[in-house]
Design a protein around this nucleic acid. Structure first.
Lengths: 231, 231
DNA sequence: GCAAATTAATGATTTATTCAAG
DNA sequence: CTTGAATAAATCATTAATTTGC
C-alpha cells in the first residue's frame, strides 16, 4: 500500500516560508493521517468513527474477537448463501445484496436525504441482513445521489435533449414494481429462508416503508429529537 | 401544510433545553453530557445521527412529477431544496462570549476538525455557558475554518502575497500555535484575569484540554473500528 | 489455477457553496 | 453583513474485480 497522503488543497498557501517549520514537534503522531486532530464527523450526521488506522500496521486485524457489546452480528441467521465471507471486523461497511436492494428501492422510491429518524429505521431494518450503522445509510444516499448525478451528466453530454425523458433511473416512485411481494408483512424474520425469501422481504419492507412515509407526511409529524445514541 | 419532521438536531441534546417546541417524550437516556463522558469505554465515540430534512420531496412529491430528477436537475433557478419547513421556534445557536472564546482558543491551538469524542467534551464544557449542542460545535469549526481560509485567500490576492504568509489557516497542527494562551498575548484584548472567573475558566479549560489532547496523541490509539451506535 | 499487480467501484471525509436567521 | 446550518461537490482510501505472469 502506499500511503501517500499529502495535504490536499493548498492552493491557498504557497511554498513560501514556513514549510520547513511545519512540523516540528511531533506532537501529532498521527501516524499517517491527516493533519486534523482526528476523525471527523458530519454535518448533521455525525457519526463518528474510527480513527486512525494504519494501513500496514499489523495490529489491526479483523476479528479481534472480543466483541463487547455491540459488535457485529453479521446477520442473524443469514444464510446469505454467498460463499463469500467478508467478516470484516472492521473496516468499512460492505453491503450485502439485500441491503443494496432495499436502499435502491428506497432511492427509486424517491428518497434522497433521509432524516435521522428515517435513517434509524432503515438501519434497523437493514441490520437484519448484515452489520450496518446509521452513517452507512447516510453515506450511501449521499454517494448514490451524487453518482447518479454524475452518471446522468455524462450521459447528457453525450446526447443532449430529447423529449423523451423516460429514465430508468428514478421513476416517480409510485409505480412500483414491488407491489405484491409478500403479504406476510415486514414481520420480523420469517424463518423460511429460501433464496428468494430474503430479497422478497426486503422489497416488501421497503415498499411498506415508503408507503408509511407518505402517509406520515400527510399526518403531522412528530418532531422531537430522537434519541441519541447512547454511546 | 408542512411541518415536516424536523428531526434536526439531535446530535446530542442537552438534557434540559428543549426548544419550546413539542418535545416531550423523554427519549433515550442519553447521558448527561455535563457529566463525565466516559462511558464504558469506547474508542471513539460515536455520535451518530443527524437530521436532514428533505423538504417534502422525498416521497410524495417526487413521485408524481415525472422523473425530473435525473432529467435535468440542477436547475440554476432552483437552488436547493432547502428552505421552507422551518420550525417555528427552532432557532439557531447563539453563542455566548465565553463559548466563542473557548472555541477560538481551541482553534488557535490547532484544532480544526474535532472528532466525536472531542466534540462531545467541548460541548459539555461550553454548555456551562449557554445552550449548545454538539452540532453547533461541529459547524463552528467547519465554518470558522472555511472562513478563515476565504479571508486569507482574499488577503493574499489583495496583497499579492508578501513573504509573510500568516498561516493562520491551517497549520499542520504541530507547530505550536498555541502558546499564546494566557501568557499575555498582547494584553490588549484580554481582559486579564482580573475579570471574573468565567473567561478565565474558559481559557483555562481550553488550555488544559488542548494539552490533554496532545498527550492523548502520544499515547496509544486504539484502532479498530468501533462500535456502532448503540441504541 | 493461484496470487501479486492493476483497475474499477464505492464507502468515508473534507471542502466549497448555498441559504437564511439575526 | 455576519455567520449558523445544510447540501453538494471534490477527494481520499479501501475493498472487490479483473488482469497478468507463473
Amino acid at each position: 500500500m502506499k500511503v501517500h497522503q499529502f495535504a490536499r488543497g493548498f492552493w491557498e498557501h504557497e511554498p513560501s516560508l514556513t514549510l520547513g517549520c511545519k512540523r516540528l514537534r511531533p506532537l501529532a503522531p498521527k501516524l499517517s493521517n491527516t493533519d486534523t486532530i482526528s476523525p471527523p464527523h458530519h454535518p448533521v450526521t455525525t457519526f463518528d468513527l474510527k480513527s486512525f488506522i494504519k494501513p500496514e500496521s499489523a495490529s489491526r486485524k479483523l476479528g479481534i474477537g472480543s466483541s463487547d457489546d455491540n459488535t457485529n452480528k453479521r446477520d442473524p441467521s443469514s444464510p446469505q448463501g454467498q460463499a463469500e465471507t467478508h467478516i470484516p471486523g472492521g473496516t468499512r461497511w460492505n453491503p450485502t445484496q439485500e441491503q443494496i436492494g432495499i436502499l435502491e428501492m428506497l432511492y427509486r422510491g424517491g428518497m434522497r436525504t433521509p432524516n435521522a429518524q428515517q435513517i434509524e429505521q432503515i438501519t434497523a431494518q437493514l441490520s437484519k441482513y448484515g452489520k450496518i450503522e446509521g452513517k452507512n445509510v447516510f453515506y450511501w444516499f449521499q454517494n448514490h445521489k451524487a453518482r447518479e448525478r454524475q452518471k446522468q451528466k455524462r450521459n447528457n453530454l453525450g446526447l443532449a435533449h430529447s423529449p423523451r425523458t423516460t429514465l430508468t433511473t428514478s421513476p416517480p416512485f409510485s409505480c412500483c414494481v414491488i407491489t405484491t411481494m409478500d403479504t406476510t408483512k415486514r414481520g420480523e424474520v420469517v424463518e423460511r429462508e429460501e433464496e428468494d425469501s430474503p430479497l422478497k422481504k426486503c422489497r416488501s419492507w421497503a415498499f411498506e416503508y415508503l408507503e408509511d412515509q407518505r402517509e406520515e407526511e400527510h399526518r403531522t409529524l412528530e418532531l422531537f429529537p430522537l434519541h441519541p445514541e447512547g454511546r
